[in-house]
Design a protein around this nucleic acid. Structure first.
Lengths: 211, 211
DNA sequence: CTTTCGTGGTATTTGCCAGTACCGTCTTGC
DNA sequence: GCAAGACGGTACTGGCAAATACCACGAAAG
């Protein structure tokens, strides 16, 4: 009877939600929760405050919705193979994984989002935990299973796969993440990224001791 | 003539400054700039708002003073030798440096301070840049000169000393820093720290490839 | 045509807090 | 012991923004 109508309404609401989320995302990611007022968001979406309160409850609800939405967007990148591909050197594979990962991470939007998660984690621990579990933790795990496969094949020698996966991830980042978040310098050239990744992978594979 | 007096006054002011800084530090580090009101600080120091405005100008001035003060405190730790000590294996030396560094870094106070620097960097880029230059950057440099010495002696084989110093630092941290800042879990056991450091150093020295 | 619901726009309420002003008190140097 | 400046306490002001209430309009249903 009213199925058509309620569906139509839901569709309309979904569109409205998207518009608000998109506008709010830009502001929240750029300026943060405190520095963004609802009026700024409304100024971009048009419409009225009632939209926000009807759809998201309050400002905090909107913020969480935005951040969880961002989580989904960002994590869709970064592939890590389950096992070694034949015919490709491990070095090349690691470089490929690392470059893809680092290019994804060092986008200004991603870094800003990460920053906002850290800021938000102070007031809203759940959100930070969720973000960590869905972000870095997942990457570590994928890399672990990949490494386990390589170790089983005798292609790598890693006494502790967990430590190794974290180590490689971090040495690929090379502190660029922290630097960006502290200095606000979000621009890194792709050339720099490739250089960084290839050197980190070489060091990871061969170690620092002379042969 | 009034040398005594002015000095006495200065001493008194210095004491007052310290009291305010100490009280403000706890609150700023714990709750952050926005969530800390001057009334909270005054409630701990006793005294009146005039102290703060006379001594620090305004709330922001107080915050910056606190953060710079924290910088000084934290950085007084962490020694890195200029060159290799004879009779001690490189592995032991790196483990010693790494453990000291990581134990220093993973104190709740230090992590919270770092978090606040990141938060503050959004509004006050200068402060973040200063903190980065005085913190991580210094550590990297020290490690670089140390590595350069080891390479010159033929004890290490590092094509890029800068990348290597960043890599070791980051793999020693192993993402624990980021995890703490995102999840709010600031407690890491010293046992875990030693384990983490020793495995990271081994991997750094020998690499992942089988011999 | 009218009622009703969803919605845009705006005014109001409420609370918070930085910054300032004012007054009373206490210390300090003469 | 007495001026003068320093300091504690508190009230006041101004501004901002979240949350709510209220009004106006347009579209769909009866």
């Amino acid at each position: 009877m009213c199925a058509d109508k309620s569906q139509a309404v839901n569709l309309a609401q979904d569109r409205r939600k998207r518009v608000i989320l998109d506008a709010a995302r830009t502001l929240f990611i750029e300026k943060g929760f405190e520095q963004t007022s609802l009026d700024m968001i409304i100024a971009r979406t048009g419409g009225s405050r009632r939209n926000i309160y009807d759809l998201f409850g309050n400002k905090e609800g909107l913020f969480e919705a935005v951040m969880k939405d961002q989580l989904g967007r960002i994590l869709s990148g970064t592939h890590v193979p389950k096992s070694a591909e034949d015919g490709v050197s491990i070095q090349s594979q690691l470089e490929a994984i690392g470059t893809e990962f680092l290019m994804g991470l060092l986008q200004p939007t991603v870094l800003r989002t990460l920053r906002q998660f850290i800021v938000a984690a102070g007031e809203r621990p759940d959100l930070g935990q969720q973000a960590y579990a869905a972000g870095p933790a997942v990457l570590y795990e994928r890399l672990e299973t990949y490494f386990s496969a390589l170790v089983a094949e005798g292609k790598l020698d890693l006494p502790d796969v967990e430590v190794a996966s974290r180590a490689l991830t971090e040495m690929i980042k090379g502190g660029l993440e922290l630097k960006a978040m502290m200095t606000g310098d979000y621009e890194v050239s792709t050339k720099q990224i490739r250089r960084q990744v290839s050197k980190a992978v070489l060091l990871f594979l061969h170690g620092a001791l002379p042969r």
